[in-house]
Structure formats: structure tokens, C-alpha cells
Amino acid sequence: MYDNPNLERKVAQNETKISARNVQVFYGDSQAIKDVNIEIEARTVTAFIGPSGCGKSTFLRCLNRMNDTIDICRVEGEINLDGENIYDKRVDPVQLRAKVGMVFQKPNPFPKSIYDNIAYGPRIHGLAKNKADLDEIVEKALRRGAIWNEVKDRLHAPGTGLSGGQQQRLCIARAVATEPEVLLMDEPCSALDPIATSQVEELIDELREQYAVVIVTHSMQQAARVSQKTAFFHLGNLVEYGDTGQIFTNPKDPRTESYITGRIG
């Protein structure tokens, strides 16, 4: 593990990738997200932190419209990806999700071979011209997922046979294989042991070079370790958003301070 180099890194020059304006989310009658405004930058790791049930995962799922799959969920407000409102009627969530990939809390490889797991996205989006092309994409994705060396000899073994940490890196590689621009990660390490966690965290840091990464985590240490920007959510409100170093060392809001010092949570 490395000693929090992110605090020193200057990130101000990055352009905005996603901007959210007055986002409200309702589950039936209850409001889960209240009036959230945030600008997420490209080539940056943004961490969402906050106590359980604060709405951080819900908000994350809004960013690639995963909430569409829940019947009673309703989103109001505007979320722009590269200046285009993703909740516009003309936007096809399928096309959106190709640009905004997602990695879930529990590793969820498909009950297929490792190769087919990675090739699934490129196949449905038609990214490969031929078999050789596809092989190349798969290898590239596995390398970027930092798992190539471990699985290159058994690409046709089932993906479910890997260890938990390997499965999660496989899922990240799977998400990377579709060439997304943003990568959303919903507590990607919560089901992993410490060693696997550190491997995934290293991987996240590497991914920052090409993607905007948004990670939800309940571990403040993890947020401090991997992110440049941190947003603190509480009871559906975005309480504070800023550079990770500032949030952890000099929070402006008393609620943020209480959370970070462990008084609420």
C-alpha cells in the first residue's frame, strides 16, 4: 500500500465529465436523493462516502441509469454527460451504459468462460471486426484489469471458478472491454479480503489515466487512498464535495467532520 500520494497530486486542470443539476430520486413516495449538484471530472477518481442508506449508491446508479430497472424509482433533475442530458427522452440507456460502465459490490461473473465474460460486451456492441480482433480486445482488457498473467492459460475455464479478488478484477476488465469513458464502482472491495482489496485499489489508480472513475465506498481509508475528489452524502443530501485532502483534513461542514471522526455513521 502506498502512502496517500493523491493529496499532493494537482487535479484542477481536468475538464468536467459529468455534471448533475438538482437531481432528486424517489422510491415510490419516499425521497432518496435531495437536490444534488455535482461536477465529476475526467481522469479523476471521485469517491462517494457517507453512512449506510445516505443515497450514495442510489446516486451512483443514476449516472448510468441503472435505476431504470427498478420500477418504482423516479429521477428528476438533469445529469449531463459531456454536455448531453442522459435523462433526455432521446437517450437510449443501452447506448449510455456502453459509455458509462459499472462494477458492482459483489463480483458477478456470468456463468461462462473467462474469455466469454470479457467478450460479452464487445460482442453485443459490435466492437470487434473478427475473431482476431476480439482476441486482442480480450487480452487488452484482461491486461488493463491486471489479471492477464493469472488467467492467460485458462481463458476457457469458467469465470465463476476464480477467487473473489480475481472475479472482481475480471468484472472490472469486463467493464473496461467495452471502452467506456466513465467507470462506476459500487463498493467494489466490500466482498474482498485485504490483499485482494489492495490489488483492486492499485488497479483503480491505474485506470484513472484513461477514465473518469466514480467509486462508492464505506471505508474512509479507501476513499483517502484512491480518490482525488470526495463527496460526502448524508440522508440523501450532498453535504460536501471537494479535494480529498481538504475533505479529510479540513472539512467545512460539521456533519462531514463528525462522520470522518467517527461520531456518526
Partner: peptide, 13 residues
């Protein structure tokens, strides 16, 4: 934000 053009060359719209 609005100054950006989509990277893939395809608009979501």
C-alpha cells in the same frame, strides 16, 4: 461542461 464534444464522436441523442 458544455464546451466538451463527445469523445466517441457519437452523441447520446
Amino acid at each position: 461542461a458544455t464546451a466538451n464534444t463527445p469523445k466517441h464522436g457519437t452523441s447520446l441523442y
